[in-house]
Nucleic acid binder design. Structure first.
Length: 109
DNA sequence: GGGGTGACCCAGT
DNA sequence: TACTGGGCCACCC
């Protein structure tokens, strides 16, 4: 598959993050996995780096680790936003089993 | 060109 | 549940 440029990959990541509905979340790994088909890349770590550097303009708080942990340095901010959106929390972590959202394959663009 | 770093993930202990 | 080790891959010295 035609690989996308690094810049395009960033755009893809941010675009998908913006599609995450309120009250739901996606893990870095799930994001990387969902974009793998499109971008040819699949690295959760890279998604984390992208969010750290370019996540300012999107609902970054809807992106957490696969275990429901929030990004270092922003735990308080993220927790409060998630809580106000109705995301199910278990202590200081997201209840992934209930909150994780995945883009549906045949979804209209 | 070489090596360290990181908003990760998974399996094992 | 918490911690550790190995794998991962782009970015930055």
């Amino acid at each position: 598959m035609a690989p996308v440029t690094p810049q395009e990959y960033v755009e893809e990541v941010l675009a998908l993050v913006e599609r995450i509905p309120p009250g739901r979340v996606m893990s870095y790994g799930a994001l990387a996995d969902a974009l793998a088909e499109r971008s040819g890349r699949n690295s959760a770590r890279q998604v984390g780096t992208i969010m750290a550097r370019h996540g300012g303009g999107v609902p970054w708080h809807r992106v957490v680790t696969s275990s429901g942990r929030m990004p270092p340095g922003h735990e308080r901010e993220a927790r409060q936003r998630l809580l106000s959106e109705g995301v199910p929390l278990r202590g200081d972590r997201v209840d992934m089993a209930r909150a994780q959202w995945l883009p549906t394959a045949g979804e209209p663009a």
